[in-house]
Amino acid sequence: MLKLQDGIKEIIRKTATSIPRDVEEALMRAFKAEPDGPAREALANMLENAAIAKNASKPLCQDSGTPVFYARVPKGLNFAVIEKSIIEGVRLATRSVPLRPNAVDVLTEKNSGDNTGVGFPEIYFEQCEEDTLVIDLSLKGAGSENAGMFYKLPDERLKAERDLEGVRRCVLDAVYSVQGRACPPYTVGVGIAGTRVAAAALSRKALMRKLPEGAEDPRIKELEEKLLAQINELRIGAMGLGGGCTALGVKINHAHRHTGSYFVDISIACWANRRSRLVW
């Protein structure tokens, strides 16, 4: 029987060397809609790059990212055992794919060389009712992670109050501030919550949702659609070269908040939004 660590290694290889189908389809539509110019050329190069990487089984991007795992674990399976397999899978993949070693000790500045270290890779567990182990993986590049933004409402500068209109203003401000520095067209993840930690966790997990999949709540879904259209009106364009496609999708997650707090966190994924699912 195939060991879990080999399954992990394989899902990392797939995630590093190809883009999700929904992302590829959205890039294709953006390419078709974009008139001649640098942004169209950029979209063409992205699609060509994805094809080269997939065919040669080579990483799409030299920054193979921070591996972030979300594991849904059935009853009876031990988190610690799965954690061990994930870490071993990351080690194996770093050598075999290969991945760029990205884990640096903040005290010694020494690179561990195998993409493991304190809190690296990032792993989140939740218990589930189903019988299968489901592990979602995101390879999150530093360029897009550095572009994330955080707001505490109300925000006087943005005239953003504690309501969905305030959230809209934050998201537009964030994308405008980032411009083309994080490799657009982006997927924009938004988290609304009452603590900083909850908002950040929600915004990044939102990036795992497939592009055609809107939020369950119709009010949130409407805001996602409105924001996508408005972000694209900013004309930042693919790679920030000007053009009609600055984002492929906006995904919003929300939680109940404390009466006194209202946080909006924004996570940005680059055009590739490398994510995959392993069902075990």
């Binding site: 640098p38 950029a42 190069n45 992205m46 060509e48 790059n49 080269i52 990487a53 040669a56 080579k58 990483p59 799409l60 991007c61 030299q62 920054d63 590049g141 360029g143 411009q179 083309g180 520095r181 490799c183 790679m239 920030g240 070269l241 680059c270 055009w271 590739a272």
Partner: peptide
Amino acid sequence: KGGMTGDVIRAMQEAGCVYFHAIGGAGAL
């Protein structure tokens, strides 16, 4: 990628240097 601003643009003007934008994430290509 992403461009540079202010003092870098002035240095480019004075010294005769240009900025070439390449495609981010197109590592394999």
